[in-house]
Each structure stands twice: as structure tokens, then as C-alpha cells.
């Protein structure tokens, strides 16, 4: 019985310590993100490279998936709206659910699967192969050079890719609303504009930025927990990706609560 209680205590302490370390790491990143000294030529180069890897290289696959998703999703949603006789709520459903909830969620899921896992492994490999120590010997701050540029490019990438995903879904919506409701394109746009709320757009951009921040911060943070052994890489990646998915769900729930207030 005592061992059981001790086990719970140990796990709780471990969880609390990990959460505290992640919060401290987050605070340090935020401070460095707003420090102009972080942005020298080397970090600028990393930001550009990371933007290419995260936001540009994925574009063909991303557009293909969003077009496919758009066709299925918008087809099903608009058909259901017609069958349920809710045509009057078309704009509210599209703006309040599809564009502010589904689009960011799908974007972040795709990016977390691709770039989050890659970042986690990259940092863990750098740690194991002592490349971070090499940077330290030459007085190159790994935080400035490795962490901050990757997180900044993650934030920018999620915001931009969400814009693309939304545009593709908008186009699918226009197509299906013409086919199902016989709506002209200008009428379709008018319905969306009337239903759009400025605060929703602000929350949407903030949500995308928060998603981008955490789907890059957590893989890096857990990549840095790798030890000097190769076998620690999969463990670091596993922990990092678990926490990324928990963070996605938490942010999604928080944004739902925020937008419902």
C-alpha cells in the first residue's frame, strides 16, 4: 500500500517537474523571440531555411490533401445543411465551424505529423552526436541558433498554411453551394462576410500562432532531453510527439471556450 502511494507521489512529482521545466523553457523562448539581439545573420539564415522546409516543401502535398478534404467535407456539410433545412445558417456554420475550427486543426495536425516529428528527431540527433556541445565551444548559443528560429518559422508556417487551407476550402464551398443551393459566387461571399466576426478572426490567428509555437517548442524541448546514447532518440521523439498531441487538444479546447464567451 505504501509503495503504491509512493509510486503515485513519484509520478506526480515527475509530472510537476516536467510541466515546470516546459513552462520555464516556454518563458525563455518568449523572451528570446522578442529580443532583437537573437536575430543575427546566422539565425536569419536558419529562419529562411526552416520556412522552406516547413511551409514551402510541404505545399504540393498540403494543397492536394486540402483539396481532397475540401471536396469531401464541404460536399457532406453543405448536403447535410440542405437536408436539415438549415440553409439560413450556411454562413454561420461555414465561418464558425469549418473555417475557424476545422481548418486550423487539420493544418496543425499535418504540420505536427511532418515537421514536429522531424524537428524532434533532428534536435535529439544533434544532442546525441554532441553537435550542441560544438556550438557551445564556439560560443554559439544553441537557444538563439537552434530553438528560436525554428519556433518562429513554425508560427509563421502554421498561420500561412492555414490561410491556404482556408482558401482551398472556400473554393470547394463555392463550388458545392452552387451545385446544391444554386448560389452565385458573389452571394456566397456575401453570406460569409456577413457571418464573419472580427473577434473570431483575431482568435483564429492567435490560435494558429499558438499551435505553431507549441508544435515546434515541444518537439525541440523533448529532443533536448535525449542523453548521449542513440537509444534515447526514439524515447525523446515519443515523449515529444505525445506532448504535441496533448497540447493540440488543450489549445483547441481553450480556443472553443474563449470563442464561446
Amino acid at each position: 500500500m505504501v509503495t503504491f502511494i509512493e509510486g503515485i507521489g513519484t509520478r506526480t512529482l515527475k509530472l510537476c517537474r516536467s510541466a515546470f521545466e516546459t513552462l520555464f523553457f516556454t518563458w525563455q523562448v518568449i523572451l528570446r523571440l522578442f529580443d532583437l539581439k537573437t536575430y543575427n545573420k546566422a539565425t536569419q539564415l536558419v529562419i529562411i531555411t526552416q520556412l522552406y522546409f516547413t511551409a514551402v516543401q510541404i505545399l504540393p502535398l498540403f494543397i492536394y490533401i486540402s483539396a481532397l478534404m475540401g471536396l469531401f467535407l464541404m460536399g457532406i456539410v453543405l448536403d447535410s445543411i440542405k437536408q436539415l433545412g438549415m440553409a439560413g445558417y450556411l454562413g454561420n456554420i461555414l465561418m464558425g465551424f469549418i473555417f475557424t475550427e476545422v481548418c486550423p486543426f487539420m493544418t496543425v495536425l499535418l504540420l505536427a505529423l511532418r515537421s514536429g516529428a522531424a524537428l524532434n528527431t533532428e534536435v535529439a540527433v544533434m544532442k546525441v552526436s554532441k553537435e550542441l556541445d560544438a556550438l557551445n565551444v564556439f560560443r554559439i548559443d544553441a537557444f538563439d541558433y537552434i530553438v528560436v528560429p525554428r519556433i518562429l518559422s513554425g508560427i509563421i508556417s502554421v498561420v500561412l498554411l492555414n490561410g491556404i487551407f482556408t482558401l482551398v476550402l472556400l473554393a470547394s464551398g463555392a463550388l458545392f453551394s452552387r451545385m446544391i443551393f444554386g448560389l452565385a459566387f458573389d452571394a456566397y461571399i456575401r453570406i460569409l462576410v456577413v457571418s464573419a466576426d472580427f473577434s473570431d478572426l483575431v482568435i483564429l490567428i492567435l490560435k494558429c500562432a499558438t499551435f505553431g509555437f507549441f508544435i515546434t517548442l515541444l518537439p525541440i524541448r523533448y529532443g533536448l532531453t535525449a542523453s548521449n546514447e542513440l537509444s534515447s532518440i526514439p524515447i525523446a521523439v515519443l515523449n515529444g510527439m505525445n506532448n504535441v498531441f496533448i497540447a493540440i487538444v488543450v489549445i483547441e479546447v481553450l480556443s472553443l471556450i474563449l470563442s464561446s464567451i
Partner: peptide
């Protein structure tokens, strides 16, 4: 070690760029 995700010239130039 050298930084594996950088090419040769960037490995050498990194110190001056930074």
C-alpha cells in the same frame, strides 16, 4: 563534431555569421 545539417561552407562560416 561538425554540424551535420549544414554543408561545408556554412560549417566554416557559421562563427562569423553568428
Amino acid at each position: 563534431p561538425l554540424i551535420s545539417n549544414l554543408n561545408v561552407w556554412l560549417n566554416i562560416a557559421l562563427i562569423r555569421l553568428y
